[in-house]
Design a protein around this nucleic acid. Sequence first.
DNA 1: GCGCATGTTAACTT
DNA 2: GAAGTTAACATGCG
Length: 278
Amino acid sequence: MPELPEIENARRQIERWSGRRKLDAVWVLDPAAVRRALSSRPSDRLEGGAERLEALLGRRTTGARRHGKRLAWILGRDALLFHFGMTGFFTQRKTREDPPPLARVGFGFGRHAIWFVDGRRFGCLVPIGADEVDLALRSGQGPDAWDEAPGGPALHAALGDRRPLKVALMDQERLAGLGNIHTAEALFRAGLHPFRATGSLAAAEWDRLARGVREQLRIANEDLAAEEEVQYVNLGGPNPFQVYGRAEEPCPACGTPICAEEQAGRTTFWCPGCQPAA
DNA sequence: GCGCATGTTAACTT
DNA sequence: GAAGTTAACATGCG
C-alpha cells in the first residue's frame, strides 16, 4: 500500500537488509521495470537497463532516502530511484535465486536477496547518479508531508483556495506523500468533509487538518514499524483503517454509517456525522 | 466472468 | 486559461 508511510517503511527495510554490504548479483526478471524516468508506463522502459544495473555490481550500499512517495537507494556514486506505483514493495529472501511471485528485479548480497515485487507493473526503478538524488527526489514535489509537515497556515498556502480538500491533499506537487487511503483517514481525524472547498476552511480548521495529517502519518508509521513484513489491505488480514474500505459500516467514533462516493476517479470514504459537509 | 484496486497522467469537459 | 473528471496504463484478487 505504497503511500508515504509504506515507502518510509520500505526505506528502513532496505537499509536494514542491505546494511553497508556489497551488491554481488542483480536479476532483471522484468526489463520494463527499469525505466528512463519515473513513470507508471512500462513502455517508458530504459533500453539496456539490465546492463546499467549490472554496472552496479561491487558497489556498497550507503543508505536510502525518501521524499513523498519517491525513494532513492544509494550505492556509492550511483543510485536507484524507485516508485512503487499501486502494488510495489520490497521483500527479502534468505537464499538466492528464489524469487517471490511477481518479482521484477532482484539484488543479491551474499546468501541473501532483496526483491522488488510489483504485480500491477505501475512501479519502476530508474538508475541515476548519486549526485542527482536530491533533484530527482524533489523535482515537481511539494514539501514532504512527514519530514516537512506544514502547519495550518503553510498547508493553506500550499493547497490553495479552490479545489476540493481531498483532491488538493493528494496533489503531489502541493504536498508530497499522501494517497487515497491516508488522505481519507487524515480527513476523518480532522473532522473535515472531503468535498469541502479548500477556500471554505477557517484558520482553526486548517490547524485541525495539519494535525490530522501528522497524526495519521505518525500512527501509520508506528504500525508499520511494528510489523516485520508489510501487510497489504487486499492481501488478507483485518482492515486497519477507520473509514477507508468501510462503506456502510458504523463510524468507530459516532456509529453513523460510513459514506463512500467517487471523487476525481477515486473512492472517497467519510463519516457524515464526524465530517459535516459545511 | 465481473468489478475493483494503494498511482500517475494525457485527454477531455466544463 | 483554469479546474475538474475520465480513461488509460497492466495486472491481480475477491
